[in-house]
Design a protein around this nucleic acid. Structure first.
Length: 493
RNA sequence: CGGGAUGUAGCGCAGUUGGUAGCGUGCUACGUUCGGGACGUAGAGGUCGCAAGUUCGAAUCUUGUCAUCCCGACCA
């Protein structure tokens, strides 16, 4: 099996595919009719639930509430905001009929032609339009503002080519949609949520990200400004991990959402939207995994510690189980999640490999030898190091170890990113360097034309215009025109 | 929608000049094992993607068709 994994890993870039089959036990739906939709089995979903839980808490701490809006969007809604139509008019699932009937020529059912909808319904690719249509009825006065809603939902985008976790036809996400009385407040909201995402990515996922602005080409359809966090995967490709959009008054104007301000003047509201998706699971996998499987940050692991008993007979098992129960209780008291795997139908070696594959941060193994010596074997997933330590104060030891693992995998990812991030000053050099992967910091003249040219010739895009860091001006590597600051180029998923 | 590849057991694959389908793994039972994915014995599991055609006979040849994967266009 180990050999098999090595062989699979040599595929390199195709992490998501095999981690899905082997680790998360998730896969693409095989039925052609729902091609490109993902099936997330329980362990993979448990990771999503952890992500959801932490983000949801952070949203609430920043003053947001959850709401839910319809799955179906009347087609006409999507015609209202011109830029938005440009961006989203293409790959959507469309509901045209509302009834089936028995097939008159044989078995089964057919669509009843008499049940054609007068107006087609679009399965939401994102909910701006239906939400703004709803907000119109909620907002009359500055006293009704701000509206700070988040929605956990599924959305559908009929992608021509799908990729497990990274680009599936149906995916789970959260989308925040806020309405504000002033431009400044809306911009602040978009920036706050960007910070929330960055905080989550770095402190929970242990995935370093760059905060930045999207170029006009990469900007969300209908947004005035798109903020993003960009991560770098182990194969050197970038992953857009989350976006936060300042929408200006575009949607308010399209859906006629106005309010009376303190001066008794009618104004359009200012809007933001922001979202992250199950793509984060893909990011998590591709940031930390190694040849032995998934490596999960302790803060997002469905269980942080697994205890495996090693025994020859029932008597031994009983003694170990007693000890393990004590340790579990102590760990749980410290807020550590523990699984005690005393399943009799798997052997210890099998369990070791299995939990490594699943990325459980810490494994404790206890056998007859440990019973005699009052010890326990501690194995950490990130370095695969094993140690035999005293069971005394094991809970403290493990709690510290979990913190250490969280910090260590972040550092590892950060160092990797640093090692493949470099400044490039000429276009010739760029063409060579981009083949090696990683982030390239380059001067760019700010025009969509130049960006397009670079994309066509090298497949690299501007991942973001960084908010932090070096702001020294220079000249564009392609055209030689002035550049305000270096921007980040990479090939991306 | 263009270019390439592939559809055979749950998964991964082999199958020669056309002769009625096999390997690994997984699964089931029993026994021995159990500190790094154990071993033995016995078993279950396949309308060979689908449909026509050629043939005494097709997984194999022909045509059509459907689907998947990879590379482009699209995208979180």
């Amino acid at each position: 099996m180990a050999k098999e994994l090595k062989e699979l890993t040599s595929r390199g870039e195709n992490y998501a595919q095999w981690y899905n089959d082997l680790v998360l036990k998730a896969d693409m739906a095989e039925n052609s009719a729902v091609r490109g939709c993902m099936v997330i089995k329980p362990y993979g979903y448990a990771i999503w639930e952890k992500i959801q839980g932490e983000l949801d808490r952070m949203f609430k701490e920043t003053g947001h509430v959850n709401a839910y809006f319809p799955l179906f969007i009347p087609k006409s809604f999507l015609s209202k905001e011109a830029d938005h139509v440009e961006g989203f008019a293409k790959e959507c699932a469309v509901v045209t009929h509302y009834r089936l009937k028995n097939d008159p020529d044989g078995r089964g059912v057919v669509v009843d032609p008499a049940a054609k909808l007068e107006e087609e319904l679009i399965v939401r690719p994102t909910s701006e339009t239906i939400i703004w249509n709803t907000y119109k009825g909620w907002i009359q006065s500055y006293r009704d503002l701000p509206v700070l809603c988040n929605q956990w939902a599924n959305v559908v985008r009929w992608e021509m080519r799908t990729r497990l976790f990274l680009r599936t036809a149906e995916f789970l996400w959260q989308e925040g949609h806020t309405a504000h009385a002033t431009e400044a407040e809306a911009i602040k909201e978009a920036e706050t949520m960007l910070d929330v995402y960055a905080d989550f990515a770095e402190n929970f996922m242990a995935m370093p990200v760059l905060k930045g602005l999207k170029s006009a080409n990469e900007r969300f359809a209908g947004a005035l400004e798109t903020y993003c966090i960009e991560a770098l995967m182990q194969d050197g490709k970038a992953l857009q991990a989350g976006t936060s959009h300042f929408l200006g008054q575009n949607f308010a104007k399209a859906f006629d959402v106005t309010f009376v301000n303190k001066n008794n003047e009618l104004e359009h509201v200012w809007a933001t939207s922001w979202g992250v998706s199950t793509r984060l699971i893909g990011g998590l996998i591709m940031t930390h995994s190694d040849d032995n499987g998934l490596v999960l940050p302790p803060k997002l692991a469905p269980y942080q510690v697994v205890i495996v008993p090693i025994y020859r007979n029932e008597e031994q098992l009983n003694t170990i189980s007693e000890k393990a129960a004590e340790i579990s209780a102590k760990l749980k008291a410290r807020g550590v999640s523990v699984k005690y795997d005393d399943s009799d139908n798997k052997k210890p070696g099998w369990k070791f490999a299995e939990y490594e594959l699943k990325g459980v941060p810490v494994r404790l193994a206890m056998g007859a030898r440990d019973l005699e010596n009052g010890t326990i074997e501690v194995a950490r997933r990130d370095t695969l190091a094993k140690e035999t330590v005293s069971v005394e104060n094991i809970e403290e030891y493990v709690a510290d170890l979990l913190k250490d693992i969280q910090a260590n995998i972040y550092k590892k990812a950060f160092d990797y990113r640093a090692s493949v991030t470099r400044e490039v000053n000429s276009y010739d050099e760029f063409k060579t360097e981009i083949e090696k992967g990683g982030f390239l910091l380059c001067h760019w003249d700010g025009t969509p034309e130049t960006e397009e040219l670079i994309k066509n010739e090298t497949k690299a895009t501007i991942r973001c215009i960084p908010l932090d860091g070096d702001k020294t001006p220079g000249v564009c590597m392609v055209t030689g025109k002035p550049s305000k600051q270096r921007v980040v180029f990479a090939r991306s998923y």
